[in-house]
């Protein structure tokens, strides 16, 4: 594998977006790009990552390779990333380490790190990425982040309901309750503020607040978030990158006992 990002912060943002959700991950590299999925220890949150060749300045993968890494270690190395440096990932044919080369030609500087790869045996879940959903919402990731931060302070359960009137996020705590209603809007001046809902039926789902606080860490990937809900199934929260690919989170709902 030899894969070069023209801006090293792209890879840093991707890794930082889920390094607190899961501890380790297998990146599966092929000529169609880098794909990964990892499930958290509690088996409630699944992260999917897709970095297609279009995200790279140059991308070459001669034979399919799996790269297992501890995310905390990789994240440490990526602290060196900045918008002036490129980053090339190299893995040899017999992979036991990942080489990261940061280059800043303007400053006549280069940095090289090596990360030992780990053999990860993890269960993979068969997730249908074309999964049909009853409700799809596209909204500002900034708005979503603020709503999650504000409401999750009040309760460890977070409810999402969607009707033809809009999307309602609500929490019911012991001493306080809160509700945020967002209705579809079209902001011609700033398209990232748009909110659109397409639905075939209403939904009403509850999730554990702590996972939503993990998910919003990925908001730096995109100024938009796509939400997909169906009754009584995991929800998908997806951040798509400008150049293709992105990071998605499948989150299992809570149910009333």
């Amino acid at each position: 594998l030899e894969a070069k990002f023209d801006d090293s912060t792209i890879f840093k943002k991707i890794i930082d977006s889920f390094k607190d959700s899961v501890t380790q991950i297998n990146f599966v590299c092929s000529e169609s790009g880098i794909e990964a999925q990892a499930i958290d220890d509690s088996r409630v949150l699944l992260v999917t990552v897709s970095i297609p060749p279009s995200c790279f300045e140059s991308y070459r993968c001669d034979r399919p390779t799996t790269i297992g890494v501890y995310l905390a270690s990789l994240a440490k190395l990526l602290k060196s990333a900045n918008t002036n440096s490129s980053l090339t990932l190299y893995v040899a044919d017999k992979p036991d380490e990942l080489l990261l080369l940061f280059e800043e030609p303007k400053n006549q500087k280069s940095m090289e790190y090596k990360l030992k790869l780990v053999d990860i045996t993890a269960d993979m879940l068969e997730v249908d990425s074309d999964m049909k959903s009853d409700v799809t919402v596209e909204m500002s990731s900034v708005e979503f982040t603020k709503t999650v931060r504000d409401l999750t302070q009040l309760s460890d359960s977070f409810t999402v309901s969607v009707t033809k009137d809009g999307i309602v996020f609500s929490v019911q705590g012991d001493t306080a309750q809160g509700k945020v209603l967002l209705q579809p809007r079209e902001d011609l001046a700033d398209e990232s503020n748009n909110l659109s809902i397409s639905m075939s039926k209403t939904i009403d789902l509850s999730f554990a607040s702590k996972y939503l606080l993990d998910i919003i860490k990925a908001a730096s990937i995109s100024n938009k978030i796509f939400l997909k809900f169906s009754d009584d199934t995991p929800a998908l929260f997806e951040f798509k990158m400008e150049k293709g690919g992105g990071v998605g989170f499948y989150l299992a709902p809570k149910y009333d006992d």
Partner: peptide
């Protein structure tokens, strides 16, 4: 009282 469901209740493990 609400209970947390698991992803493995919904998706088959490979």
């Amino acid at each position: 009282k609400s209970k947390q469901r698991k992803l493995t209740d919904f998706f088959p493990v490979d």
